[in-house]
């Protein structure tokens, strides 16, 4: 079984962000980078499926500058078999339709039985790429999956809805699955597997070879939201902070009365 997993490298969301000189994206300097959280579930599910079937070949795809190879190595250490690095220094400016177009172009003649993506990225958060890939390849896609089981080409899935309700759906492969938090427990790569990953194949493909679609939207501006204010910010030493907070709670809420 051939499996494709699509991952993205994103900044740690606790980073201190700045807007870059163009005024249309965040500055990429002084940030810690990691695998998009949703994609960790996608990688894990692909690896679990291979383990279940006792055979399989997992390609992990990532679009970005050379820096994304670090994140790709983590997914190789988690159990993917090879990497396809689509080299693009301008990846952050690409909108979901372009990203999906590149993935579909890569995948179109490779007979992947399953394609896993995260349900969204933590930075853009558009939630479009996985579904668009399915549309472009003409195969079904199911989004926001929190339970997955595979048996002889049939997928039993649960989609998560609001309020913790789940929708039970069945679909046949080939298919695209977009993974939601909690789908599984992503493994930590072990040291031997990190060593093994270093020897795994990492193909490099130029974005120009795969980008065949035109963008349909453009970012005009990026900025920090206006602070609505009102909120009090307390800083200092723990005991002092506790005294201040208790005073406020006594004054403003009935809780400590």
């Amino acid at each position: 079984m051939k499996i494709l997993v699509c991952i993205k490298q994103v900044p740690d969301m606790e980073s201190k962000f700045k807007v870059d000189e163009s005024g249309t994206w965040y500055a990429k300097t002084d940030l810690a980078w990691r695998m998009n959280e949703y994609d960790e579930y996608a990688v894990e599910q692909a690896v679990q499926l291979k383990e279940q079937c006792k055979e399989g070949d997992i390609t992990v795809l990532c679009i970005g500058s050379d820096q994304v190879k670090e994140t790709m190595k983590k997914s190789l250490a988690m159990g993917c078999d090879r990497g396809a690095h689509i080299k693009d220094d301008e990846a952050s400016g690409k909108e979901p339709f372009e990203i999906a177009g590149v993935i579909a172009e890569f995948a179109k003649d490779k007979d992947f039985e399953l394609i896993f993506t995260g349900m969204q990225s933590q930075d853009r958060g558009s939630g479009q790429v996985g579904i668009l890939v399915g549309e472009m390849l003409g195969i079904p896609s199911v989004s926001t999956v929190v339970e997955f089981s595979y048996e002889g080409g049939t997928l039993d899935l649960k989609r998560e809805l609001e309020g913790g309700i789940k929708a039970c759906v069945k679909v046949s492969s080939p298919a695209v699955i977009t993974c939601q938090l909690g789908l599984n427990t992503p493994r930590y790569p072990t040291l031997p597997n990190i060593m093994k990953a270093k020897k795994k194949e990492l193909l490099s493909i130029d974005i120009g070879d795969l980008l065949r679609v035109e963008p349909r939207q453009e970012t005009m501006k990026m900025y920090f939201p206006e602070k609505k204010g009102g909120g009090l910010v307390l800083e200092g030493e723990a005991a002092d902070l506790a005294d201040q907070l208790i005073k406020i709670l006594k004054e403003k809420t009935g809780v400590l009365a």
């Binding site: 900044p11 969301m13 962000f17 807007v19 965040y26 933590q122 930075d123 853009r124 958060g125 035109e214 963008p215 349909r216 939207q217 453009e218 970012t219 005009m220 501006k221 990026m222 900025y223 920090f224 939201p225």
Partner: peptide, 17 residues
């Protein structure tokens, strides 16, 4: 106007269609 990075930033988007 859409949020970026867990709502830490905002982005203004113009459609091309």
């Amino acid at each position: 106007v859409v949020p970026v990075c867990n709502s830490k930033l905002r982005r203004e988007v113009k459609a091309g269609t």
